[in-house]
């Protein structure tokens, strides 16, 4: 994988801007349920869920230099686990969700042992193959998973007996809280010494090894962490849609989330969130007006690649840096 030079612009001014911008942004997010219709609110929920999903993949693609084409496996396995536990055993959200995240983590441990031996395009393909195996289980094990038709009628979670999340606004805050937590965790990881070690591995594994880092262990940890956060996104998605089907872990979804990351700008965290939101909005906006939305998305991919090869956020950063220099 080519190294993406993206030293974070961590100036004092930048930090101040973030601190100043945070409260209004938070306020806006908190007040959205009272400004938007239920349908638009649903689109925002999807944007948040896919943002988290894309950011979790960015930890691998952008920060560690591991392009995975099987990330939907963890999204889907968590979704199936949460759905099955809710439907068959009646488990509530506080038990089903941790169990689902553990299922994602265990799958990542297993797949990691196989996949981490490879690099670059081979890594891309082995993650694809492994996710196809997971898809095959969801598709083929009909007595458990319902096969191709999936499992409908999964209940919306309730926090406790008094606070069910059937109301769309309450559910929005539920998603906002978890996506916020996941994002915070990712931001902390990326800014930690561990995060910088991952960047080092992206730039040069040999150098990191020479410095005494156990490269494999770092990659393994990143792989499992990314899977757990993808699993969180998958859980939220299953509660949102109230059904799960093999489509959740199909290769198309893995490709989609990888493209969201690249489109927004790999290695920037905020970029993949922008990319994910953009795709969700485009898919729902354009398709109401034209059948040719697939072509439009194709054109957007090409335009971004040609004129902003580092993605949308990479482009913005380069501009900012160019302006900062006298």
């Amino acid at each position: 994988m080519t190294a993406l030079p993206s030293k974070p612009v961590r100036s004092r001014r930048g930090a101040a801007a973030v601190l100043l911008g945070l409260p209004p942004a938070l306020l806006a997010l908190l007040s959205l349920p009272y400004l938007l219709s239920t349908y638009d609110l649903g689109i925002v929920v999807q944007m948040m869920i896919f943002s988290l999903f894309a950011m979790s993949l960015d930890l691998l693609v952008g920060f560690t230099g591991m392009p995975s084409l099987g990330h939907a496996a963890y999204f889907g396995i968590a979704a199936y686990t949460a759905g099955l536990l809710a439907l068959k055993l009646g488990w509530g959200v506080w038990f089903a969700m941790p169990a689902a995240l553990i299922a994602s983590a265990l799958t990542a441990v297993l797949f990691g042992f196989l996949a981490l031996r490879t690099r670059g395009s081979y890594f891309l393909m082995i993650t694809l193959a492994l996710s196809q195996v997971a898809w095959g289980i969801a598709f083929g094990w009909r007595s458990l998973t319902g096969g191709d038709d999936g499992m409908p009628n999964i209940p919306r979670p309730s926090l406790d007996a008094h606070w069910p999340l059937t109301d769309d606004r309450a559910f929005y805050y539920f998603v906002l809280a978890f996506v916020g937590l996941g994002t915070l965790l990712l931001v902390r990881i990326v800014a930690s010494p561990f995060g910088y070690a991952l960047r080092g591995i992206r730039e040069s594994e040999t150098r990191m090894r020479a410095l005494g880092y156990d490269v494999w262990r770092y990659k393994f940890a990143a792989f499992v962490l990314a899977a757990v956060l993808a699993g969180l996104a998958g859980c939220l998605y299953v509660y949102y849609n109230r059904f799960v089907s093999p489509d959740y872990l199909q290769v198309v979804r893995s490709a989609e989330v990888l493209l969201m990351v690249i489109l927004g700008g790999a290695g920037t965290l905020i970029g993949p969130a922008i990319g994910a939101s953009l795709i969700v909005v485009l898919e729902n906006l354009i398709s109401a007006y034209t059948e040719r939305w697939l072509m439009m998305i194709g054109v957007i991919y090409i335009l971004v690649a040609m004129f902003a090869p580092r993605g949308i956020m990479g482009f913005i950063r380069e501009r900012l840096r160019a302006r900062a220099r006298p």
């Binding site: 392009p67 690249i262 194709g298």
Partner: peptide, 22 residues
């Protein structure tokens, strides 16, 4: 113009895949 840049290459070739498919 994107020689050895895997990520934008993926974006371009995927974009064409979408366009031709449509």
């Amino acid at each position: 113009r994107l020689y050895l840049e895997e990520l934008p290459q993926a974006l371009v070739t995927f974009g064409f895949l979408f366009i031709f498919s449509d």
